[in-house]
Write a protein that binds this DNA or RNA. Sequence first.
DNA 1: CAGTGGTCTAGACCACGTG
DNA 2: ACGTGGTCTAGACCACTGC
Lengths: 255, 255
Amino acid sequence: MSSESIQPVPAAARGRGAAVFSPLYKQIKRLLLESLRRGEWKPATAIPSELELASRFQVSQGTVRKAIDELAAENLLVRRQGKGTYVATHHEPRSQYRFLRLLADDGAVPVAHSRFVDCRRVRAPAEIAARLGLKAGAGVVFVRRLLRFASAPVVLDEIWLPARMFRGLSYERLAAYTGPLYGLFESEFGVPMIRADERLRAVAADERSAELLQVQAGSPLLLVERVSYTYGDRPVEVRRGLCVTRGYYYHNMLT
Amino acid sequence: MSSESIQPVPAAARGRGAAVFSPLYKQIKRLLLESLRRGEWKPATAIPSELELASRFQVSQGTVRKAIDELAAENLLVRRQGKGTYVATHHEPRSQYRFLRLLADDGAVPVAHSRFVDCRRVRAPAEIAARLGLKAGAGVVFVRRLLRFASAPVVLDEIWLPARMFRGLSYERLAAYTGPLYGLFESEFGVPMIRADERLRAVAADERSAELLQVQAGSPLLLVERVSYTYGDRPVEVRRGLCVTRGYYYHNMLT
DNA sequence: CAGTGGTCTAGACCACGTG
DNA sequence: ACGTGGTCTAGACCACTGC
């Protein structure tokens, strides 16, 4: 065990002297986050019980609880009464649909089937590299896929991934994998996606996209530009989705 | 004071017999929500202190705190250390931008100027009536307005409001009001908007919208269909916004 | 039955805003 | 100096899971 988890700043030393003050539970939260980032606890496994963490960090159970509460609110941990607290995973329906915002007009969650059109290693275009925090021209894996809902093509995704983090990703591997893409990233490459940032626009379909999506060139399409992040705000994926919004809509709840 | 706030179910009677069990703090939360719904505490004013609420409901401060925590997480209340807990209001920059998701390409929050094009009382079309929970043909106030960012028209909004809740709303009143529309709803009509549900699509500009937005007919536009709710999940507004997404994008964060 | 998270309490002290 | 919300503790008991 690393030293910081044994000496997480004595309770008596809080709030004095240090330029930056942070409550004990925030410090505990940071330690937990660090363990998650290091992969000390893998997705879908249970972390130590609250009492054990309390004794490890020499704080009360209530303080650990508050740290875990925040991580659970951020969907990094999942509490299960009577069982324990688990690291979030993309291998469950509940997590899968967190990042799929398209719904059918009647509000139903569409059943998606994906067909991979392309997968190759290329040099990152300047804009993609910038968003991924890479140097221009760095190696990336480029993936193009078509999502079908009820057999009709609805989403055309173009995806760029840092080659360094996704060594060995190939068309064959994608085609062989059944399940959500983020599940594959998590299990096969040890890159759990935890957050994403999206920019939505309306654009006109270009020739090639129109053909793949079976719409007329120039038809309005919803463009969803996504950057996904893993622990430590590290960008791991740039995705450009073109969506046909006839019969489907992008759902968003404002609270 | 009403009777339910004096007898919020004795602590000793929890979890037995009743078909529906709910923790004490959830019951307190419901009582607080009810007070908000009744308008007992107005937007921008402070609610009683935690200690006072604890003594009023005969529970500990910690239980009240947990109820308030949830309401604050839902943006219905705002905590201010050293001052008290306040009812959320739309008359503050921080709340205003909660529902404006359009950003300039460089990420800047655009300065919006609105120009009202239309405001009249009409009978609700069937679909609008359905979404507002009204009978088809019920009276609604119809508003059309143009939002300009940096002098260029960017959003064309069509808004439907239940006439019964917005008596006296007129073009003159809209034009005279400076500030966010939801601020006007809150202060002038006692209808605080607290939540909204949006459906996004890409559509082609029709002749009329194209002219107002100064784009070519058929250009792709982002259609944002919004239903807004006040306390008790009561729908109070249907809004259809057509947005030009050249130079601007709709921002969404997935967590 | 044991172990986990979930709720509730009571009390201490800290940080912040205001007078 | 006072009152507010914010943090932390210790301990009790409840609800759920799985053996």
